[in-house]
Design a protein around this nucleic acid. Structure first.
Lengths: 72, 72
DNA sequence: ATCCATTTGGGTAATTGGGGCG
DNA sequence: AGTGTCCCAATTACCCAAATGG
């Protein structure tokens, strides 16, 4: 099987999970989804799920390392 | 649970929390991040988060610099 | 006292968090 | 218990000017 698109094997994260990774409130994650800052998937029940790969990617993209060691 | 991939289970701190630890203004913490003196992670909304381990490490260095010449 | 570089503070807009309800 | 949505206060970010130190 060679699927060029993302497999459904993609792990999905709950708003609470994403909130923990970014150290924000779950409500804030919901805001990001509403604002289109992050892709979201709706369960049949109306709750949101987020793609782990996307979340991890954003986390890495928004991370900055210190350019100078503790003691310059 | 137990993720086979690298867990970024790093606890993050808000600018206000870091400011409290260093006894400085939250604004000052933001400037440290802008100057690259401390690593930072941005939320999709633009706010910054800091790695607790890095902050603790810097804090420890400050403590060791504040040598107490009590004896010896 | 002036010039240069760095740090600090004010003001405003955006983001975030907590409470309440379904 | 977790989540979705709305309201409002607190926190944070960014821009510009002022103060400090050599």
């Amino acid at each position: 099987m060679s699927t060029p698109t993302q497999n459904q094997n993609e792990r999905l994260l709950t708003p609470g999970e994403v909130a923990t990774l970014f150290r924000v409130d779950p409500k804030t994650v919901t805001r990001w989804a509403s604002a289109g800052r992050i892709g979201s998937i709706r369960t049949p029940g109306g709750h949101r799920r987020f793609r782990e790969s996307e979340v991890r990617g954003m986390l890495a993209e928004l991370t900055s390392e210190a350019t100078v060691p503790t003691r310059g």
